[in-house]
């Protein structure tokens, strides 16, 4: 599997990661090599094998639906890039 420039741009958009134009060929090359490594899996017949999601086959624990957390908004927002009046600020979304 060899990825094209357009493939890399599409994946980078899906991942919301900006890639510089001049770096695209290197990413295309690197990612194609990684996918070539991964393609060794195709040689194995896995028909009927249940995918392993958890090594110990554990399932999600349930807990009582009770409030456990306390309000730490100020502490969390102290490390935010931009806040105002307890809100996170981002560029205007709706004109």
């Amino acid at each position: 599997m060899s990825l094209t420039r357009a493939d890399v741009q599409k994946i980078a958009h899906l991942a919301r990661v900006a890639i510089r134009e001049e770096d695209i060929p290197l990413y295309a090359d690197n990612l194609s090599n990684i996918l070539a490594l991964v393609e060794q899996m195709e040689a194995v017949n896995t028909t009927g094998v249940a995918p392993l999601a958890h090594p110990l086959d554990a399932v999600q624990r349930l807990r009582p639906d009770a409030v456990g957390e306390v309000d730490q908004r100020e502490q969390f927002q102290a490390i935010a890039p931009r806040t105002e009046d307890g809100l996170y600020l981002v560029p205007k979304v709706i004109e």
Binding site: H13, A15, R16, V17, A18, I19, R20, F76, I79, A80, P81, R82, Y88, V90, P91, K92, V93
Partner: peptide, 22 residues
């Protein structure tokens, strides 16, 4: 948005996401 690196002067929200991560 909530913590960590943010790019300079994002022109819109998508630009903020993409360049902060890039």
């Amino acid at each position: 948005v909530r913590f960590g690196y943010r790019c300079e002067d994002p022109k819109d929200l998508e630009d903020l996401y993409k360049r902060s991560r890039g």
